[in-house]
Nucleic acid binder design. Structure first.
Lengths: 336, 336
DNA sequence: GTCCATTTTGCACACGTGTGCAACAGTTTT
DNA sequence: AAAACTGTTGCACACGTGTGCAAAATGGAC
């Protein structure tokens, strides 16, 4: 009847209440910050709880509150090391703030929209989206259920959806200025066909800055957003070696493909014959073979910023959409 | 009174039951495979459900079943591209099988043990661990709650814990054979101080295979498991260039550091002056600068194997611990 | 000691679902 | 036609928690 249950799962607030000699409500209140309960009662509850190994059941709590501690992360792919370290940092920061990160990669037949509505079923505390902007109907549904959405590196202005991104304009301008200062007066910028907001913004800022200084810029279209795209663009770039051009790749993963192929396949000296600057400052850019100048977006700031936007909107759901901009920094290495 | 609720959240099985003219139990049964319900009733329920936009509330279901669709993934760090792609594949495969992946990275004060007991609170369907083996008490607790655990690339034999790993013995032997076939009769293997099971197994198999063929092997200790460790080992390796040695790195991320530094800093020709073989076949190993021979562990097989072990143990919790071995494959490139 | 303001407590309901059990309908066997 | 059997259905309970509300307790002022 009054048998002591084994510590761990199976211990309910009722068991704790009985041992502590209080009502079950008191137990619930003891574990609820700012609840109406006396210091004395709370202490008795904590004592009994640790004695039994009691832990609040988050599922039951979620059913009651209609809200979980879960936060969804929707990501396209993780083959880009920048995304991987971003997710790594975000996951850690979320846990430190008491959230539980879920990871979803978009897949065959499972786009951002499907994954988002799947997350809605779980009454998540929020969703961080680094893939595509979801359709507006879903956003409205999220707003109605007061589920915060944070868009990373996307510019789509949606009702009640917060955005965060690096300062792509500043980054693009720094790239142009750095190349021009290095004496490159013919510029080239690689533009992936599948370019998203952050990429095009960098390119536009780069071109604008070059225009201001009357430096000609070629925009060279490449395939997708990966190493192979940069590598395959090398032949076209190699033709211009005599011009001592300065090349800007709006993403390190592309830049490394280009740099690698230019040196290995075409034997081009960098920065001797041309200069190159990338973006993201992924670890590989610091490797010996590359030693590539790049523009760094600190992943820790991303994580902090994202969680900040989430918690603020949870505290005050009616605030108008915010757009946070993170500072970027030039990392000088050996390709300029 | 009978007002139709807005589609989406807030629609309960009760609403569906009323519209379909059946009991609430029927709705529950309609969404439960192999439940006792007539074709006719199920159809009526589905019709009403789609009309209202009803979706089963997974939180309420979880509270009742004492089991979630969540599966925890505990990982050390994601800076190794192999781990990143492993998690990427695993996340996709889990979702395809109806699970919801949660991602936890071990952190300051949050080791495998803490994260695991945190996951227990959520009544997860299972946990995939790629960090450390958890203490046996936690494993017992998981067994008691019938929560399947899968250990990836770890050898710790624990009660009711399944394990999966690549065939590290085969991989290590292939490495040795390949180097010896290439005419290298002095071998070196890099051994990280922080080596875990999978790494040491590869090394042991490599050494054993060399011994069988009477080929001498030097074991060279390096620091941690990353690019910098390999890079810093280059000086020591460079001293032996006259021996035309064959080097095995039990992890590509280390191998690339070594390869990169050997070529760039010490100007050593590979495979001219020495041969090198890595492990994991991460994308960077196929890059131009590296063109590194490596041993591939297919991440897709890992994901499928893990989910297979999970589902089988969910179906039959009493099966003895299994140990699944995945085939590995030599990827011939230009460093041997 | 009385009265009022404030804090603390416990009851009871709600959150949305799965399922054992008994009742029931429909079909086959004797 | 009665009996036995198979397949469906609805009732009612359980899962473990948070919280509004009224009652009780506490503390202070007179």
């Amino acid at each position: 009847m009054t048998s002591v249950k084994r510590p761990g799962s199976g211990v309910t607030s009722f068991d704790v209440a009985r041992l502590a000699g209080v009502s079950r409500s008191a137990v619930s209140r003891a574990f609820t910050p700012r609840a109406s309960i006396s210091k004395d009662a709370r202490l008795k509850v904590f004592d009994a709880a640790s004695q039994l190994g009691y832990r609040v059941n988050p599922v039951a709590r979620a059913l009651n509150q209609r809200r979980t501690d879960l936060v969804g992360m929707i990501v396209a792919r993780m083959d880009n090391p920048f995304r991987a370290s971003q997710i790594d940092a975000l996951s850690r920061t979320l846990v430190r703030h008491g959230f539980r990160p879920m990871l979803f990669c978009i897949d065959e037949g499972l786009g951002t929209e499907q994954l988002l509505s799947l997350l809605l079923d779980y009454s998540v505390s929020g969703v961080v989206i680094t893939s595509d902007a979801p359709p507006i109907e879903i956003c409205n549904e999220c707003a109605r259920q007061q589920i915060p959405l944070v868009l990373v590196d996307r510019d789509d202005r949606l009702p009640f959806v917060d955005r965060i991104s690096g300062d792509n304009v500043k980054g693009g301008r720094i790239a142009a200025e750095t190349l021009i200062e290095a004496g490159r007066h013919k510029l080239v910028v690689l533009s992936p066909e599948t370019a998203v907001y952050s990429i095009t913004t960098r390119i536009d800022a780069f071109v604008a800055c070059a225009d201001e200084q009357d430096v000609p810029v070629d925009v060279l279209n490449v395939g997708t957003h990966n190493y192979e795209a940069g590598r395959d663009a090398a032949a076209s770039i190699a033709e211009r070696r005599h011009d001592e051009i300065g090349v800007f790749c709006p993403s390190d993963i592309i830049a490394l493909g280009l740099l690698d192929a230019l040196r290995v396949k075409h034997g081009i000296k960098i920065p001797g014959e041309m200069s190159l600057i990338g973006y993201d400052d992924i670890p590989q850019s610091g490797w010996e073979f590359a030693d590539m100048t790049s523009i760094s977006q600190p992943v820790a700031s991303f994580a902090d910023g994202i969680v900040g936007l989430l918690t603020e909107r949870i505290a005050n759901p009616q605030t108008p959409p915010r757009n946070e901009l993170l500072d970027v920094m030039l990392i000088r290495r050996g390709t300029v």
